[in-house]
């Protein structure tokens, strides 16, 4: 009660997501051809631990809740994770997108939801081509169900968390046509 999004909000998210996907698809070649910063080393597809560290950062990966680092005022991407920049995700093949999605969903099955995880899940969903392969289909359903479980257990009305979970459930159910999982107002 009070956590479920309105139909209007859900429709807006689907429309915005669709526009983001169109822009991504239109400019993918440009972003693929851009040089990455020398510190961005994308792991091999089969390197599960490498991808978790890459996306979530060593801090979240190791479960260290350290807020600030006084000795270094700049952003240390190794510690906080690399964000899903277009220049990074445009280089990922469909197979890699699906594989990394699987790694992160498996992580989320056991760990807390974080903003870093939310951004990557959203970005990977934006890269996932339709029609879905059977394995991607089952993966994203698993993701939406996990989001629902976490939402049910959330007692503190953490608005950012609930919103992020609602967004993922909404995109899986309404953009990727898994209507039985949708929040019905």
């Amino acid at each position: 009660e009070g956590y479920s999004p309105t139909l209007k909000w859900q429709q807006q998210q689907v429309a915005d997501f669709s526009a983001v996907r169109q822009s991504l698809s239109k400019h993918r070649n440009y972003w693929q051809s851009q040089n990455l910063d020398s510190n961005v080393i994308m792991p091999q597809s089969e390197d599960e631990e490498g991808w978790k560290k890459f996306c979530l950062g060593e801090r979240v990966y190791s479960g260290i809740d350290e807020q600030s680092d006084n000795e270094n005022l700049g952003i240390n991407y190794i510690k906080v994770g690399f964000p899903p920049l277009l220049s990074i995700v445009s280089r990922m093949s469909q197979a890699t997108v699906t594989t990394v999605l699987e790694y992160l969903i498996s992580w989320f099955g056991e760990k807390k939801f974080t903003p870093e995880l939310g951004r990557w899940l959203y970005a990977l969903l934006a890269c996932l081509e339709k029609p879905l392969l059977p394995e991607a289909h089952s993966l994203i359903r698993q993701l939406a169900r996990r989001c629902s479980e976490v939402r049910v257990l959330e007692e503190n009305k953490n608005e950012e968390l609930i919103s992020a979970l609602n967004l993922i459930i909404c995109l899986v159910s309404r953009y990727f046509d898994q209507r039985d999982l949708a929040d019905e107002p």
């Binding site: 009070g2 277009l86 951004r119 970005a123 919103s163």
Partner: peptide, 27 residues
């Protein structure tokens, strides 16, 4: 116009996610 300027921003996906998350308010 907007779409074009967004296309040259490497952090479009991050901004789109953050905007979507900020748009929901619990009842």
């Amino acid at each position: 116009q907007n779409e074009d300027s967004d296309a040259w921003d490497d952090s479009v996906l991050i901004k789109a996610y953050d905007k979507a998350v900020a748009s929901f308010k619990t009842a």
